[in-house]
């Protein structure tokens, strides 16, 4: 093995700061895209459940298309291609902002929202039909039945898969390095190419990703153990 480990290189000084900055940006872009994706995903799911045919089709086309094409291609599409189809004013505004960050956020939002919409839809679908019937039979109207009986159950079922979708988003955010967003993976690459000590840099980056993923999936397991057993029909 001709490789000399030098951990102090990435655990102190400038290179450590690069990695930490990257980690913060990873969390930032994931959080921002996560919030937007939850909102957009809910909208798409509601359209799908609306019983209004054109809205249903639109929602179906949206989820099918964005789930079945690679995120990386979508990122390039928004980054290189946005000029062609976004209104000029929006593009001008976007360029004045941090354009890489904006394109990355849009791509992550749209991609994740398609998955989130599917989780929400199947969560609502998994509530047995007779729950709606039983609540309507006691005189609750449609909205009340959803508000007090269907959605509270759907919500409990859907929380764990939604959180794992947000975790996927966090991991997927590594792809925006390709358009120059300086998040964790980008910075690890940077350190690698400046110092040739990629092993250390990538170890730190991997451990940071793992720390978040593992603690969240542990929390999901606990949640499933303690809260989900109630929902037996």
């Amino acid at each position: 093995m001709g490789y000399q480990f030098d951990w102090s290189l990435v655990l102190t000084g400038e290179y450590r700061d690069w990695l930490l900055d990257g980690f913060v940006l990873t969390l930032k872009i994931s959080a921002l895209a996560g919030v937007c994706a939850l909102a957009l995903g809910t909208l798409v799911a509601v359209m799908r459940l609306s019983r209004v045919k054109p809205l249903e089709w639109l929602s179906l086309a949206f989820t099918e298309f964005f789930r079945n094409t690679p995120l990386l291609v979508q990122i390039f599409f928004w980054y290189f291609g946005s000029e062609a189809f976004l209104p000029k004013a929006v593009n001008v505004w976007l360029y004045k902002q941090d354009f890489e960050f904006a394109a990355g956020t849009i791509a992550l939002t749209v991609y994740s929202s398609a998955f989130i919409a599917e989780e929400l839809r199947s969560g609502v679908f998994s509530i047995p039909k007779n729950q709606l019937e039983a609540s309507r039979a006691t005189g609750l109207n449609f909205l009340q039945a959803y508000r007090y009986v269907i959605l509270p159950q759907a919500f409990r079922i859907v929380i764990p898969p939604l959180i794992s979708q947000l975790l996927n988003l966090l991991k997927n955010s590594s792809l925006v390095m390709t358009i120059g967003v300086m998040e964790l993976t980008y910075q690890a690459r940077q350190v690698e190419s400046f110092t040739f000590h990629g092993f250390e840099a990538f170890t730190v980056a991997t451990l940071l990703y793992l720390a978040v993923s593992l603690s969240v999936s542990f929390a999901i397991t606990m949640y499933n153990k303690h809260f989900l057993h109630q929902l037996r029909y």
Partner: peptide
């Protein structure tokens, strides 16, 4: 499952060769 795929690709492409020759 907790690691981004891109990380893994870098591990196999850049790091495996350097570290394990």
């Amino acid at each position: 499952r907790g690691t981004p795929l891109l990380m893994l690709i870098f591990w196999f492409y850049f790091l495996g060769p350097v570290v394990f020759n």
